[in-house]
């Protein structure tokens, strides 16, 4: 059999590959072409009930579950004047430190109200540590149609059990009482940042 010269033979792989489909992903130019998988563990999100109240009850189970000690939560009382979540307690301070987070997802498994879930957002790089500590307002989910920014009352005639049973479909006009004016995207006073 005719043997190709060694110099040509050495290019076999090269030439063969030229005609194969390209696997390189052009990031960040073509990032939108390659979304992460649906279950990818990305940045966290603090969810809301359909009427805009926060699901977080400040129980700190996420913080306790966290193997990297990346989460800090401080609970507080919902009062008659300021209600942020159904029931008695809400998370007044909520911080996730993304310089520590290892995206293992144990926190979202620990969450008893499914307040904490993970999005697919992975572009979390920054040039300083302080900005990588995400506060509650950075983590809260968007205000969808039908939602009203807390603090505000629960839907009249319902209890916290109705919220947990997913019976709330959206806010009603009665909820936009005088509380609405002093709300700032559902973010209460931030404290305890250390």
């Amino acid at each position: 059999m005719l043997e190709l010269p060694a110099a040509v033979r050495g290019f076999g792989v090269t030439f063969g590959t030229i005609f194969k489909k390209v696997v390189t992903e052009q990031y960040p130019e073509d990032a939108s072409k390659y979304p992460p998988k649906p279950r990818f563990h990305g940045r966290h999100q603090l969810n809301r009930w359909a009427d805009g109240l926060e699901k977080c009850i400040g129980c700190e189970l996420c913080a306790w579950a966290c193997p990297a000690d990346a989460i800090f939560v401080q609970g507080a009382d919902n009062s008659a004047e300021e209600r942020f979540s159904p029931g008695e307690r809400y998370g007044r301070v909520y911080q996730i430190n993304y310089t520590r987070c290892i995206f293992c997802g144990l926190c979202i498994e620990a969450c008893p109200t499914r307040a904490l879930t993970m999005t697919n957002e992975f572009e979390l790089a920054d040039n300083n540590r302080a900005d990588l500590i995400y506060e509650k307002q950075d983590l809260l989910g968007p205000m969808l149609p039908g939602m009203l920014a807390p603090p505000h009352e629960m839907v009249p005639g319902t209890t916290d059990s109705d919220y947990y049973a997913n019976k709330i479909t959206g806010s009603v006009p009665e909820q936009s009482g005088p509380q609405q004016n002093n709300s700032q995207e559902g973010a209460p006073e931030q404290g305890g940042a250390e």
Binding site: Q74, G75, E88, R89
Partner: peptide, 9 residues
């Protein structure tokens, strides 16, 4: 002390 913290931390 109500809701101020959890015993484990």
């Amino acid at each position: 002390y109500r809701f101020r913290s959890r015993p484990f931390d």
